[in-house]
Lab assay of single mutants.
Amino acid sequence: MSDQEAKPSTEDLGDKKEGEYIKLKVIGQDSSEIHFKVKMTTHLKKLKESYCQRQGVPMNSLRFLFEGQRIADNHTPKELGMEEEDVIEVYQEQTGGHSTV
């Protein structure tokens, strides 16, 4: 019986991991920090939209990076291997420009 009891508790931990929340720091170019608590399985588009709304800027005017890689709207913290207190960097999107060649 103890084996049966242990097995469901392991499964519960697996389920808990799926719905687990982590805190992420979003740091802007001006070094301002906003902290977000997100589920591991939530699409990061929600975090990006919330950040842009707080900053009063359109979402397409900023780019969000985690460990140097651009974050897509459909990425989740779990897919990117994010952990508690990880940092997302935000930069002004640069458009235009010309070749110097």
Rank of each mutant, 00 (worst) to 15 (best):
E89M: 09
I88M: 05
H75N: 13
G81L: 12
K17E: 14
S50G: 05
V57W: 09
T10A: 12
I34H: 05
N74W: 07
L80S: 01
K48S: 01
G96W: 01
E20P: 15
F36G: 03
T10H: 11
A72D: 09
T10G: 07
R54G: 05
S9V: 11
Q53L: 11
K37D: 05
E79A: 06
F36K: 00
I71N: 01
I27D: 03
G56Y: 04
M82Q: 01
I88E: 03
I88P: 03
R63F: 05
D12Q: 08
E85V: 09
T42K: 06
E5V: 14
G81I: 04
V90H: 04
D3P: 06
A6N: 15
Q94G: 02
P58Q: 07
V90I: 06
E11A: 12
L62R: 15
S99N: 10
M1F: 07
K78H: 08
K39Q: 09
K78N: 14
F66R: 01
V26A: 14
Y91H: 11
V101M: 09
F36Q: 04
I71F: 00
G97K: 04
H75T: 10
N60K: 06
Y51F: 10
F66Q: 02
G81S: 15
D12K: 11
I27M: 06
V38W: 01
E20Q: 13
Y91A: 06
L62W: 01
S32G: 12
E79K: 10
K16Q: 10
E93K: 06
T10V: 14
K46C: 03
L13W: 10
G68H: 00
T95I: 13
M59I: 11
L24S: 00
D73V: 01
H43A: 13
S2W: 12
A72Q: 06
E85N: 15
G96C: 05
T41I: 10
D30Y: 05
M40T: 13
V101D: 06
L47E: 02
F66T: 02
G96Y: 00
I27Q: 04
S31C: 09
Y91T: 04
Q55P: 07
S31Y: 15
Q69F: 08
H43W: 05
D15S: 09
E83P: 00
S9P: 15
D30K: 05
D15K: 11
G14K: 14
E79I: 06
K16G: 11
A72R: 12
K39A: 02
G28S: 15
N60C: 05
V101G: 07
N60I: 03
E79P: 00
H98Y: 10
M82Y: 03
L62F: 10
L62A: 00
S50H: 08
V87N: 09
A6V: 14
D30I: 01
Q4M: 09
L24M: 06
R63Y: 09
P8D: 01
T95Y: 00
I22S: 06
L62P: 02
L24T: 07
K7Q: 11
I22Q: 03
M59N: 11
S31K: 02
V26R: 05
I22K: 03
M1W: 06
V87L: 14
F64G: 02
S50P: 04
F64Q: 06
L80Y: 05
T10D: 05
D86A: 11
D15T: 05
L62I: 15
H98T: 08
D30P: 06
T10C: 10
S61K: 02
T41M: 14
R70F: 05
I22E: 00
E20C: 05
M82N: 02
Q55D: 09
M40C: 10
V26Q: 05
V90G: 04
E83W: 07
E89N: 11
M1H: 07
S31F: 15
M1Q: 07
K17I: 08
E18I: 10
L13Q: 10
G28H: 04
D86S: 14
L13D: 13
G56M: 11
K25V: 10
C52A: 01
E5P: 14
Q4V: 06
G68Y: 01
Y51G: 01
K7I: 14
F66L: 03
Q94W: 10
Y21F: 14
E49K: 08
L24Q: 03
H98W: 08
V90F: 05
H75I: 07
A72M: 15
I27S: 04
E89K: 06
D3I: 11
G56L: 05
Q55L: 11
K46V: 09
M82P: 02
N60E: 15
K17Y: 10
H98Q: 09
I22W: 01
S50V: 13
V57G: 04
D86K: 04
T76G: 04
D3Q: 09
L80T: 00
E85T: 07
Q4Y: 10
D73F: 04
Q4W: 07
E33N: 05
Q4L: 14
S61C: 08
I27E: 00
G14L: 14
E67H: 03
Q29G: 01
C52I: 00
Q4D: 04
E83H: 05
L80I: 01
Q29M: 05
D12N: 13
Q92H: 09
Q92N: 06
E18M: 12
P77T: 02
L62V: 15
R63V: 06
E18P: 11
S31V: 01
Q55H: 09
D15E: 12
Y51M: 01
E83T: 15
S99Q: 09
T76N: 01
T10E: 06
S9M: 08
G14I: 09
E20K: 13
E11Q: 08
H98E: 09
V90Y: 03
P58Y: 02
T95W: 14
Y91R: 06
K45Q: 12
E20V: 11
L24Y: 01
V101I: 12
V57R: 15
K48N: 03
D30M: 05
K48E: 01
K78W: 09
S9C: 12
Y51N: 05
Q92I: 08
A72P: 07
C52G: 03
H75M: 07
M1D: 07
F36C: 03
Q53P: 10
L44S: 02
K48R: 01
R70T: 12
T95C: 10
S50T: 15
E85Y: 14
G14Q: 14
P58E: 09
K25A: 06
S61V: 02
L47M: 08
C52H: 04
K46F: 08
M59D: 15
S2T: 12
S31D: 00
G19D: 12
E84P: 14
K16M: 12
E11R: 10
L13G: 09
G56N: 09
F64E: 00
F66I: 04
G14F: 14
L24V: 13
S50M: 13
H43F: 08
S50N: 00
E11C: 08
K46P: 02
I71A: 01
R54Y: 02
E83A: 14
V38P: 01
L13M: 08
E11Y: 06
K48W: 03
K16I: 11
I22Y: 00
I22R: 06
E5H: 07
A72C: 11
G19Q: 10
K23F: 02
E49T: 00
P8I: 06
I88G: 03
R63K: 06
E49D: 07
P58L: 09
Y51E: 03
C52D: 02
K25W: 01
E33P: 04
S32E: 07
Q92W: 11
A6L: 14
I34G: 02
L65G: 01
T95A: 12
G96N: 03
S61F: 08
I71L: 02
V38F: 06
Q53N: 07
C52L: 02
Q4K: 09
Q69G: 08
E85R: 14
E20W: 05
V38R: 01
E20Y: 14
M82S: 03
K48D: 01
S2L: 12
S61G: 06
I88T: 02
L65W: 00
E79M: 14
E11K: 12
M1K: 07
I71V: 14
M82E: 04
G81Q: 12
H98C: 07
G14A: 08
Y91K: 05
A72S: 15
A6Y: 05
V38H: 00
T76A: 02
G56T: 04
P8T: 06
L47K: 01
L13P: 10
E67T: 00
M1P: 06
N74H: 08
G68N: 06
E18D: 14
S50Q: 15
K48L: 02
N60F: 06
V38N: 00
R70D: 09
P58V: 00
N60Y: 06
T76E: 00
G97C: 03
S61Y: 14
S2I: 13
H35F: 12
H35N: 10
S32N: 12
K45F: 05
K45G: 15
K7L: 08
L65S: 01
S2A: 13
G19N: 12
K25Q: 07
